[in-house]
């Protein structure tokens, strides 16, 4: 199983060059059964990454480009009267896929955003009194463009924390980009083939959820969230949902790294991705002081009794 996971990550990395850490984080996000938010400028490989993830795991994939005039129905689907059967028939929208890429999520109206977030949380869609289950597994990868905010609806904090992780891809380094350019023609054409079966992936998910977490590590997580609440340095302290997310994500990270127990390093590795978007008050002050999650990390000793 371990081999399969490593092989999947390697496959994605060959596709999204030079982003080992972000890829691993994204993979562990899915492994922890959480939704992912990718925040970056256009052209950094957000879509490529989503595609690669879907392909490697063999998931049905759809992409919804969010615009200000996108209606919930465009995404969820509609009931249409079928004259043959003399009844309404549900036509599922693009959301009925295992992995949905919600591109530029902040361009859509709040109404559409809430519809998506509700679907993410409930894993089902309610329409005209009928409930339609979404496929399993169901992941949403949302992307946001932190620049060019005019005419957008940034996600409110209460909705941001529906995403387990938020990652930033950033510019590739010199070597990686050179490699990418030189091998551009040959690689992008080739679609990735599935490395893992879906059943294997859900097994891995279950195994990851059972990673042993000792009191020492749980205490560490508690100290982190308590510090964010009591020190007064953070405008938005971490909620219990956040501490739960932190534990889940750490477990997935430990599982990927072939351990059956948690160490503080796991928590530290996922903390920026899990906590940063929860600690910030909104997208707008993203460019303020340094990273809040790093401040939090440095303030708490993993050993202290």
């Amino acid at each position: 199983m371990q081999k399969k996971i490593n092989a999947s990550i390697d496959a994605i990395c060959r596709h999204v060059i030079g982003k080992q850490e972000q890829v691993t984080l994204a993979f562990s996000c899915l492994l922890a059964n959480g939704h992912l938010l990718i925040e970056d400028l256009p052209g950094m490989g957000k879509t490529t990454l989503s595609h690669a993830l879907a392909n490697v795991l063999g998931l049905q994939f759809s992409r919804i480009q969010f615009t200000s005039d996108l209606l919930p129905a465009d995404m969820l689907g509609v009931n249409i009267f079928d004259s043959n059967e003399q009844a309404f028939k549900f036509h599922p929208g693009p959301i009925f896929n295992q992995l949905v890429l919600a591109d530029e999520i902040n361009r859509a109206s709040p109404k559409t955003q809430s519809a998506l977030l509700e679907a993410m949380e409930e894993k089902q869609v309610s329409l005209d009194g009928q409930t339609h289950s979404l496929p399993s597994p169901f992941f949403v990868i949302g992307t946001q463009n932190p620049m060019h905010q005019s005419g957008t609806y940034p996600l409110p904090e209460s909705q941001l924390d529906r995403f387990l992780m938020r990652i930033q891809l950033g510019y590739p380094d010199w070597q990686a980009e050179k490699l990418m350019l030189s091998s551009a023609q040959s690689k992008t054409e080739k679609a990735l083939s599935a490395v893992m079966q879906l059943s294997e992936f859900s097994q891995a998910q279950q195994a990851a959820a059972q990673i042993h977490s000792s009191d020492a590590v749980i205490d560490y997580i508690l100290r982190l969230v308590t510090y964010s609440r009591e020190s007064g340095k953070f405008p938005n302290p971490l909620s219990p949902r956040a501490s739960k997310a932190l534990l889940q994500a750490s477990r997935a990270w430990a599982y990927i790294h072939g351990r059956d127990y948690l160490v503080p390093e796991d928590v530290q590795a996922v903390l920026p991705a899990v906590a940063e978007h929860r600690l910030r008050s909104s997208l707008t002050d993203l460019h303020g002081q340094g990273s809040l999650s790093h401040q939090l990390l440095e303030a708490v000793d993993p050993l202290a009794a």
């Binding site: 160490v263 503080p264 390093e265 530290q268 990390l297 440095e298 708490v300 000793d301 993993p302 050993l303």
Partner: peptide
């Protein structure tokens, strides 16, 4: 040891 460095690191 800087206070936030875990054992393995």
């Amino acid at each position: 040891r800087t206070a936030h460095i875990p054992p393995e690191t």
